[in-house]
Design a protein around this nucleic acid. Structure first.
Lengths: 218, 218
DNA sequence: ATTATTTTTTAGGCATCCCTAATTTCTATT
DNA sequence: AATAGAAATTAGGGATGCCTAAAAAATAAT
């Protein structure tokens, strides 16, 4: 069954809202996320219900059916893979990839996501540390570990970052940290939670606790 | 100035028709290419005229303005670059890339085409041998030379193919010929125009005139 | 329990981009 | 110049996906 760009965006947002742990997804919440008015959502909710992609009860809110979740997950997969492509291959900065991937996620071809996945080396995480669903729907374990959790003496690999402010990105660049960078924790200063880290060889900067908490590692 | 997907497709087709050497682009010809009815084209032609992307006089047909040509060329550039990406990086077959690139050409970002171009190594031709416009609008020379034009003893590089039938593609694969393959012409048989060619070392097949005429070389 | 507030729904509209079915206007022949 | 055929246009519609404004229903607060 075919579905429009708009339908895909609804399904994707419903998925995100349910992932965010909302116990009930109301039309108001959904329409806010989509940047439209609640009245406009009514038609689409009916349409998606008729197509059996969602169920909707006023009391229980919107829920994805198995078919709907499948579509949503394929969009999320596509989005995150394109983010990796844009950052790693086209050298876009961390904060610009999302908007472009928002467009690319809707390109339709039965083999595209798998071929892209293969080309990118089957990454588990996108540049923001979000897990990339596998083609069979499985999800890589969500990386909740940050650099600040790493024990002294232990090493880790950067899988994503949580902060995409220009200042933060600039700092990362200056430190030479990007996806895949290996970091060893040399020392932790108890006073303020800051740490001395080792990037490659020779480079041993001291970074604040605040900084370390925004670096997702594996 | 922003423009819709539909507007982009009109501008692209007008460009293609003018490239095909049509001395007059009629609404009928245009609508046929776009797969719509002529009546539907009237509105859009008016719209594009109002936006100064085209001029339209019944006697002279549709013509792109400088602004319109710029948009059309950027779509064509994007399309051809994505074709290269899909074939070379994602290993799609020659005949499938066009349809997917048709979707990808509309992704909007000011830096995308240039970054993709860079990533792909600034190719001059797409997999069908069509020249890829440069970011400043310049066009690589159109490769009108085919393998059958190459002199005995001379070498050439494959830049594209004209035939995308499954049988032809399969044959190419069997011969080990793809974009960038270097071919030397060892011998030409006058009787039927067939030739003995050298691909890499050791591989010296005899190919028909018909085959050689569909291989674009530089 | 009765307001007040929020949420949902209806009703009527608008822009985009396409359609069919008539015309009208060209163009090319005779 | 008359006319057949082709091309362009008008008129009226339809689907999609959004809107505002108002009404109805549900939930929360007093």
């Amino acid at each position: 069954m075919a579905y429009s760009l708009s339908e895909e965006n609804y399904l994707k947002e419903i998925y995100h809202l349910s992932q965010d742990g909302a116990r009930k997804i109301s039309l108001t919440a959904l329409s806010e996320r989509l940047g439209i008015k609640a009245a406009s959502a009514v038609d689409m909710i009916r349409k998606l219900s008729a197509k059996r992609f969602i169920t909707y009860e006023k009391s229980k809110g919107v829920k994805l059916t198995t078919a709907g979740a499948k579509v949503a997950l394929s969009i999320v997969r596509s989005h995150r893979l394109w983010e990796v492509f844009l950052l790693e291959k086209l050298k876009y900065s961390w904060d610009t990839v999302h908007g472009i991937a928002e467009q690319m996620e809707h390109i339709k071809d039965p083999e595209l996501a798998d071929r892209l996945d293969e080309f990118l080396g089957r990454p588990d995480y996108d540049p923001h540390g979000d897990p990339i669903p596998k083609s069979d729907g499985r999800m890589p374990r969500i990386p909740k570990t940050t650099l600040s959790d790493v024990a002294v003496g232990a090493a880790c690999v950067v899988v994503g970052i949580k902060d995409t402010s220009p200042a933060y990105l600039q700092y990362l660049k200056k430190l030479g940290i990007s996806i895949g960078t290996r970091i060893r924790v040399s020392e932790r200063i108890e006073y303020d939670g800051s740490m001395v880290i080792e990037i490659g060889k020779g480079n041993r900067p001291n970074v604040s606790k605040q900084f370390a908490e925004s670096v997702l590692v594996d």
